[in-house]
Amino acid sequence: MAALDDPADPRAVLGAVLNEFLPLDEQRRSALRVFVAYYVRSLTDPALAEVFLHASQPLEQLVAGLIRQAGAAPGVDPGREADLLVSGVTGLGMDVLHGRRTLADVRTTLDHHLDRILPAR
Rank of each mutant, 00 (worst) to 15 (best):
Leu22Ala: 05
Gly88Cys: 04
Ala12Lys: 04
Pro78Lys: 09
Ala12Asn: 14
Arg101Asp: 04
Pro23Ala: 08
Leu66Trp: 07
Glu60Asn: 06
Arg68His: 14
Arg121Val: 03
Ser56Cys: 00
Glu81Ala: 15
Arg29Thr: 06
Asp83Gln: 14
Arg121Lys: 12
Gly91Pro: 00
Ser42Trp: 00
Ala47Val: 11
Gly15Ile: 04
Arg80Gly: 12
Thr44Asn: 12
Tyr38Val: 00
Ala64Met: 05
Leu92Pro: 06
Pro78Glu: 04
Gly75Arg: 15
Ala49Trp: 09
Gly15Asp: 05
Leu92Ile: 10
Leu66Cys: 04
Arg101Ala: 15
Gln69Gly: 01
Leu14Gly: 01
Ala2Val: 02
Arg116Phe: 05
Leu85Val: 08
Pro46Asp: 04
Arg29Val: 01
Gln57Gly: 03
Leu18Trp: 05
Leu48Thr: 13
Ala72Phe: 04
Val17Ile: 11
Phe35Arg: 14
Leu18Cys: 08
Arg29Asp: 01
Glu81Arg: 00
Tyr39Ser: 10
Arg107Phe: 12
Leu14Asn: 01
Arg68Trp: 11
Leu84Thr: 11
Ala2Phe: 03
Leu84Cys: 06
Ser87Met: 12
Asp115Arg: 14
Asp25Thr: 09
Arg33Cys: 02
Gln61Glu: 14
Thr44Phe: 10
Leu110Asn: 07
Pro23Gln: 10
Glu81Val: 15
Ala3Asn: 07
Leu48Trp: 01
Asp95Glu: 11
Pro23Thr: 06
Arg33Gly: 00
Leu62Phe: 09
Glu60Ser: 04
Leu32Trp: 02
Gly65Asn: 07
Gln61Pro: 00
Ala72Gly: 02
Gly15Gln: 03
Asp45His: 03
Gly75Thr: 11
Asp25Arg: 12
Arg29Gln: 11
Glu26Val: 09
Arg41Ala: 15
Thr102Leu: 14
Leu43Met: 15
Leu84Lys: 03
Glu26Lys: 09
Asn19Trp: 05
Pro58Thr: 02
His113Gly: 02
Val89Gly: 02
Gly75Ser: 15
Ala3Leu: 10
Pro74Ser: 13
Leu22Glu: 02
Pro58Glu: 06
Asp77Ile: 04
Ala82Phe: 06
Thr109Ser: 09
Val36Lys: 09
Phe52Tyr: 10
Gly99His: 03
Asp5Tyr: 10
Val17His: 06
Arg33His: 06
Gly99Thr: 09
Thr44Cys: 06
Asp45Phe: 00
Gly99Lys: 09
Val63Thr: 08
Asp6Asn: 15
His112Tyr: 12
Leu43Pro: 07
Ser56Thr: 09
Val17Lys: 03
Leu110Cys: 03
Val106Met: 04
Leu22His: 06
Ala49Tyr: 12
Leu24Tyr: 13
Glu20Cys: 13
His98Glu: 11
Val63Ile: 15
Ala72Arg: 07
Arg80Pro: 00
Ala120Arg: 14
Asp111Gln: 15
